[in-house]
Design a protein around this nucleic acid. Structure first.
Lengths: 156, 156
DNA sequence: TCAAATTCTTAATCTAAATTAAGTTTTTTG
DNA sequence: CAAAAAACTTAATTTAGATTAAGAATTTGA
């Protein structure tokens, strides 16, 4: 269990490589993301203080996600199979809950509704990342997010 | 740890209720799903033999999902916090992996691509559920799935 | 500090999938 | 087995969000 400091921009995991580690964020902000065939970025998860960020594949399979730091951060580097121990069960369950909510919203909610959910759930992160990143997390384009925000103002 | 038989159509969990149980499927097929504001159904997960189906919220919070049997099934009823023990870690990790893939696909893949992924990943389930359910799982309408399948045939 | 890069906004156009609607096939059940 | 219900198909129309493009604002870094 190693404690390391990483500068903004540091890449902790690349797509396709094997990685037996997950990252417990002490301070700062990580993100995990994918690139699609067109090279478009889709943020899978933000990792602020207290979160564990890692690829949800077994340690013997190639990673599906890139992980990097979007703020200077301090993280504990933990072996993936800590997941199998009781200690990290809480962080684990939290991840499952967030993913469940995300799948539900991606399937059943409009872009505006997903935005408003994000706004409520992560008020802290909102101000720490670019709109481009928020759009990427929501599964829409930055242009669509810009339009959506303007329309929401009109209605309120 | 109770072993029960449930008939097709049996409801194991309703939205909004408290439920401290998860269901380990011995035989048959369960599903979990949500209803949106318009009453439209969105299948969150299928649970064939070997799977654990449950709501990924802590036992003290109201459930986000309905769970029912879509085939006559035999299931073990387990307390949710078995999740915190080593025993179920594998099923747990599997669920996380599936959810990760689902989020990625919902964000970055077209309906056709999601269909083809489903086809490959769950060839067994394909023939056991209606197209309406597959559409619901993919996040599209049954009409769109029907059209999509026809177009895919032309190309092959 | 100021030039370059990146991000953000706005608007026009396009497209994948939703909606609506009607007819057909399959399944269920009395 | 026949009627009713549910599922499936097809096609026309609509729409949310993508794409493209261009200019404005903000951030970065030499």
């Amino acid at each position: 269990m190693k404690r390391i400091k990483v500068k903004k921009g540091t890449v902790l995991q690349e797509f396709g490589e094997l990685n037996t580690k997950v990252y417990h964020v002490v301070s700062g902000l990580l993100r995990s993301y994918t690139l699609d065939q067109k090279g478009k970025e889709h943020i899978f998860m933000f990792g602020p203080e207290g979160w564990v960020v890692g690829d949800n594949v077994t340690p013997d399979l190639p990673c599906e996600l890139y992980i990097d730091a979007i703020e200077d951060s301090v993280v504990y580097v933990l072996p993936k199979d800590v997941n199998r121990e009781n200690k990290n069960a809480a962080a684990f369950i939290k991840r499952l809950g967030v993913l469940q909510k995300r799948v539900i919203l991606l399937m059943s909610a409009s872009a505006i509704e997903r935005y408003e959910h994000f706004e409520k759930t992560y008020p802290d992160i909102m101000s720490r990342v670019t709109q481009k990143m928020i759009a990427s997390y929501l599964g829409i384009t930055p242009e669509a997010l810009s339009t959506l925000k303007k329309e929401r103002l009109k209605k309120k």
